[in-house]
Amino acid sequence: MPGAARLPLAGLPFAVKGPTGIRSYAARRLIAAGGVPVGSTSVPGPGTYWQTWGLGAHGRTVNPWRPDRTPGGSSAGSAVAVAAGLVELATGSDGAGSVRIPAAWCGVFGLKTTNGLLPSPDRSGLAAAGVLARSAAHAQTYLRCVLDSCGPAAPAPLPLRAAYSPGLGYADVDPEVAAVVRGAVDRLSACGVIRLTAGGCDLLDPADTWQAVRSGEVPPPAEELRRENDRRLNAFFATTPLLLTPVTPNRPHGHEGPGELFSTALTWAFNLSGHPAASVPAGFTSDGCPVGLQLVAQRGADVSLLGTARAVEEALISVRS
């Protein structure tokens, strides 16, 4: 119709996480903005260990960079659909790292929104809506559409104060994964995107507390650990707007499963605390596995986090090229 306003997505194809994803709030908002859902993506089946790897009821989901490795999960198929070029964005949900881990291992952008910003059926409060996308710019479009009130992010003045914490004070990180992420951080510092502050942000290991919250029975020691980590994060973000870590302590494992490894070690802390967090491609290990750089910001700072992620992404791409 002549003169009709063009919808923000205007026919852009997108994928939804799992067979029920089409009914999610985010999917309905994307459709209202003109997006076209083209299919539902694979999700690890019931009983899969932490749902962080890609083996489901219909078999394995293959990492497009290394077919012998998992793409991560539980937003496994969404990450693969974006990485393989089938769609430019796909919906996801993140209760322990289920957007950020597959984004990191498939070499795409991933965002977990601030807990409670968008509707979630998870009664524990751990899971937040998220998106996997070809770039941070595509994720900005997603957020504008699902919030229906969010204009373009004003770029933060650069360099942005940031701290790098390789293991958050408790996680053992694969040395090559740590080296790839540290290299990305150093490049961002050298090209003026960030200004590294002294120190990092050490937290207490949230593993037992996350599991207690998930089970619905939270003993006093778990509550105390959660409060202490919240106190430390509040103190950190009072002076420093950006926290940088690896997304995972390990590289993608095989389809036989994760074994005793917790791929969630560096992600689920921010499901407990509620902070928004993103995964930006940082590079590759020597065996061809993608590695993700995690960006964490203050609660509710999703819009500015995406603006920062876009600057980070563009800087890393320009350095690599």
Rank of each mutant, 00 (worst) to 15 (best):
G130F: 00
V131S: 08
A133T: 05
A133V: 04
A133H: 09
A133F: 08
R134G: 04
R134T: 06
S135T: 11
A136Y: 02
A136S: 12
H138R: 11
H138C: 09
A139S: 11
A139D: 02
A139P: 08
Q140K: 07
T141A: 14
Y142N: 04
Y142A: 00
Y142G: 03
L143C: 02
L143H: 07
L143K: 00
L143V: 05
L143P: 05
R144E: 03
R144F: 03
C145F: 01
C145N: 00
C145K: 01
L147M: 12
L147F: 09
D148P: 12
D148M: 06
S149D: 13
C150Q: 11
C150G: 04
G151I: 08
P152W: 12
A153P: 15
A153T: 01
A153K: 03
A153G: 12
A154W: 11
A154L: 14
A154V: 13
P155V: 06
A156T: 10
P157K: 09
L158M: 14
L158Y: 00
L158R: 14
P159H: 07
L160H: 08
L160T: 06
L160R: 13
R161Y: 10
R161P: 15
A162S: 13
A163D: 02
A163H: 02
A163G: 11
Y164G: 01
Y164A: 03
Y164R: 03
S165Y: 01
S165K: 02
S165G: 07
G167Q: 03
G167I: 00
G167R: 04
L168H: 05
L168C: 12
G169S: 02
Y170C: 05
Y170Q: 03
A171V: 03
D172T: 09
V173C: 06
P175M: 06
V177H: 01
V177L: 04
V177Y: 03
A178R: 15
A178C: 08
A179M: 05
V180M: 08
V180F: 03
V180Q: 00
V181F: 11
R182K: 13
R182N: 13
R182G: 11
G183K: 00
G183C: 04
A184P: 10
V185Q: 05
D186Y: 02
R187E: 14
S189K: 05
A190Q: 15
C191Y: 11
C191M: 06
C191I: 08
G192V: 04
G192A: 12
V193A: 05
V193P: 05
I194V: 15
I194M: 01
I194N: 00
R195P: 01
T197P: 11
T197W: 10
A198E: 15
A198R: 11
A198C: 12
G199S: 08
G199D: 14
G199C: 05
G200F: 06
C201A: 14
C201Q: 09
C201G: 09
D202R: 13
L203R: 04
L203A: 07
D205E: 14
P206L: 09
A207E: 08
A207P: 08
A207K: 12
